[in-house]
Amino acid sequence: MPLLELEGVSKQFHARGGKGIVRAVSNVSLKINAGETVALIGESGSGKSTLGRLVLRLLEPDEGAVRFDGVDLTQLSVKEMREMRSKLQVVFQEPFESLNPRMSIGDIVGEPLIIHDRGLNSDARKQRVRETLERVGLSPDSSTRLPGQLSGGQQQRVGIARAIITNPKLIVLDEPTSSLDLSVRAQILSLLADLQRELGLAYLFISHDISTVEYVSQRIAVMYLGEILETGPVSEVIRDPRHPYTRALLSSRLSTDPNESLPRLRLIGDIGSPTEVRAIGCVLAPRCPMAIDACRSQIIQLIEFSPNHEVACIRAEETSDALLSNSISGGGSN
């Protein structure tokens, strides 16, 4: 049984100004096994962060089931869900914003214990906080400080300490390194890898950065406008992407080797609007150089391309760099 299983999860929002609806997440299914890292990759508006919040039930899905350890979280009462949260944690992108600026580091990291481990007395709790701070590479003395007195990397370590102190099984990492500097990012990624090994954690790693995803995860799900377009083992998806979007995303990665340049594939124009009503057809069709009439008139679903590798593209067999770059349309349109 997978640790986390999403089945047909959807979430809509009312668009700002009351015009139409935003289909933030449409009919998403995903599995995460214990101890595994699954990456959710996508650009802005892809719905990847919304999906993370649906997993944590920080948002209620409109449809679908979120099963964690076999329990459908959407069916739990507020109280039952609160108890479940000790096993299901989160680290956010903005390290400073996700910490109460007027609470000491010790209080922030110790708070989950007050909620979930009521038997613990104050001394024992402080001891656990000290141990956890050390485990994430912070000095125990930092417990008396305020978040604003720490650097960005240290603040993110505090966020991680708060997430692991209740011994969770799954942590949703919502772009945990995106706002950090390169050298700090490397420190945090190494820390997350160490913690996963030591504590047997499973991660849902939300990111827009292919290099990071390739480094940290075993499986990957590529999202675009609320839908998963391709999913499979990270090595296979990156070596042989079958969805034109995945291929374009990979080719947008900039190698740090000046002599290596990746194929230049461009999607046409900018990311579409999730407010557009679209009952059938592929979400990428308006931007896809490979799109044919059938892409706009059929219902497109994820289908198995090879074992564990699913692609939502009717031309998945044919996808190639040549097909994509031949039809490059220069620049963007509105």
Binding site: S151, G153, L182, S183, R185, A186, Q187, L189, S190, S211, T212, E214, Y215, V216, S235, T256
Partner: peptide
């Protein structure tokens, strides 16, 4: 060197540039 080594690449250990 440390900056270049801090870029995640599969199969490579990340350079840990300590301190701030």
């Amino acid at each position: 060197s440390a900056l270049l080594g801090a870029i995640p690449r599969p199969g490579h250990e990340l350079t840990r540039l300590l301190g701030s």
